[in-house]
Design a binder for these strands. Structure first.
Lengths: 344, 344
DNA sequence: CTTAGCACTCAACAGGTGAGAGTGCTAACA
DNA sequence: TGTTAGCACTCTCACCTGTTGAGTGCTAAG
């Protein structure tokens, strides 16, 4: 059996209606609402075909049809017309990005808020990956007798800090000296480079303060490998509870149990860093069992052409893809531009 | 009517049972389970008295009794026996605080996780208040052509950072010079002091770089007044969904809508900073309408005897106060000690 | 190929019923 | 006077049942 324009129209109608109402849609409804010029009976025949082809399914015998994952996929790939933002929404976006910005985290957070506000689903934003950014400045500051604070400022605008133990007897001047050497060697270098021969260079120059240096290197490496960059900005949990698919607490629980595992969510997003354009993952296309009834729409934002992180929207499979895709695309651009503006 | 020991025992039994089962408890149940040596009929009489006194109430005519807010209050104040941690739980706490700590935020976060894990309710932790802490180090770093990053390291272990616009023409050396002056003047001073005459002093010394100085002062002030310190660490949302009072999504929604307003939650906690010991707020004692069906147990943690912030547990009024109070007290101590250890 | 008509299916809802838990009251008892 | 057994009463909840309505598939006519 092949897809023909009439089948396409019917599938489009079914999906559109289901996205709007969350109710299984019957042949009658389509005939009445979507004026395709054919009778319910004909539509029924076509629907039987569409079901056989796997695009729609029936929750039970005497109910209407709902789109299957395959149906949504077909819709997203071939049928969907993007739905532009309303003037009010555009205005909201413009305003949000023209407020005074205080740091990168704030822009990212604000983007998350916008995402969830505009789509009414949950939003996730993965901040710039630390490993890919370069050192701008490194500073060691004495805290207690045997503690020092290590602060690393990256060119992505991220600031990493951590407390380290230092051997007693190290003076503020020593720390200053070490900071100076670290700065000289690491400034402008990507975080990844600290694994390399660089380390030896520094060791040589600072053979006296070996112990503390080891700690610093360990910390920097730590930040690189599993550092705070796996933090995820999550907004709009409340929105998602308004979706009828989360009427039952059980569903909410399974969803929340996923979202509480930041690392899992982080990896999910991280796997899409660098991809061109907007990616749509529907249901089980998300490689995560418990999220099989959700969809994600994600895109990568960048700075100076370099992909930095990803942002996305998370909602039920019955998601308003037409709108969400537009919003995600729009905000990806805006975020990239904002970063350009902030970081020069 | 006066409270006598028998009434107390019955009230204690009712509350204990209701906390355990979340079901209205009847006279029969008490007679069977709690062996007070009196018959259901007698218990009924006493219950009628307790109801008249306002300690318990009936959801409907033919149901058992449930404690009223006043009943919980009496319980917490006079009847409750604290429930010590099990050896396993103590071990868990010990382990958590003996892991290697990387910064203050991390200890705080871990404390939140422990709180929610041990109590099975939601946990909130208010990080150290910025205004009360002293500057340890200030650093300005050039980012783009017209942007600089301002980093302030506080003695509480907090690191504040923000991006500011700078007039073009400012060199890295200029920034370095400004940093030096700021450090000289502000080091060891509490954040609050920047409002004072200090500002004039610095202005005098740096009259050349007026523009950028204004920005820096503005930022510092900003951080003081409404800065990131109102961030709240929130954990264990998932736990709270297991409580039967949140079986219906509506309840979850109202709760979440509160918890999403970080500032509101922050203020709620902030109002208790500095109070001695553990504070229990039951139902409408929390000055927040929509949280009238919840209780909070909070305490203040400190560093060098100075109160820094608060931590607490949020759950339904039917909360296991005996356990929660112990846990909160225990973790307050542990957190204070951990900070002592980290910050020297 | 399309469509009207019809019999059939099934979820959802409303109304009715019985069981069970719990109460308050009363009268008997220590 | 305080305690207790007994009893009638109330109310929720779970269960059943019949009804309604939406929707289908099939068939036969257009």
């Amino acid at each position: 059996m092949r897809m023909d324009p009439r089948k396409q129209n019917i599938l489009l109608a079914i999906i559109t209606d289901y996205i709007a109402t969350a109710e299984p849609v019957g042949s009658r409804t389509i005939a009445r609402k979507y004026r395709l010029g054919i009778s319910p009976a004909t539509i029924r025949n076509e629907m039987a075909d569409l079901e056989e082809m796997g695009y729609i399914e029936q929750p039970h015998t005497s109910a209407g049809r709902i789109p299957s994952e395959r149906g949504y996929r077909y819709y997203v790939d071939y049928l969907m017309k993007r739905q532009e933002l309303t003037p009010e929404e555009e205005e909201l976006v413009r305003q949000s990005y023209h407020q005074k910005v205080r740091d990168v985290g704030e822009v990212i957070q604000r983007t998350g808020q916008l995402l969830s506000q505009l789509t009414q689903y949950a939003a996730v934003v993965l901040p710039p990956k630390a490993a890919a950014s370069c050192f701008k400045h490194i500073q060691l500051v004495q805290m207690g007798a045997e503690q020092a604070m290590l602060v690393a400022i990256m060119d992505s605008g991220a600031v990493h800090h951590r407390i380290i133990d230092i051997p007693s007897g190290i003076t503020a001047a020593d720390l200053e000296a070490i900071s100076a050497v670290l700065n000289a060697k690491l400034q402008g270098r990507p975080m990844e480079s600290i694994r390399l021969t660089l380390i030896k260079e520094i060791y040589f120059e600072l053979s006296k303060q070996r112990r503390i240096l080891e700690l610093v290197m360990e910390l920097l490496h730590d930040t690189l490998v599993r550092g705070s960059e796996n933090r995820v900005y999550l907004t709009g949990l409340l929105n998602i509870l308004n979706q009828p698919e989360f009427r039952h607490v059980e569903k909410v629980k399974t969803l929340l149990s996923i979202l509480e595992q930041e690392d899992l969510l982080g990896n999910l997003l991280a796997s899409d860093v660098g991809k061109e354009g907007v990616t749509v993952r529907i249901g089980r296309e998300i490689s995560c069992q418990q999220m099989s009834e959700c969809s994600m729409v994600v895109a990568t934002y960048s700075f100076k052409g370099r992909p930095l992180g990803t942002l996305g929207v998370l909602g039920p499979t019955r998601m308003d893809y037409a709108k969400v895709v537009t919003v995600v695309e729009c905000l990806t651009k805006n975020l990239s531009q904002a970063l350009e503006r902030i970081l020069g």
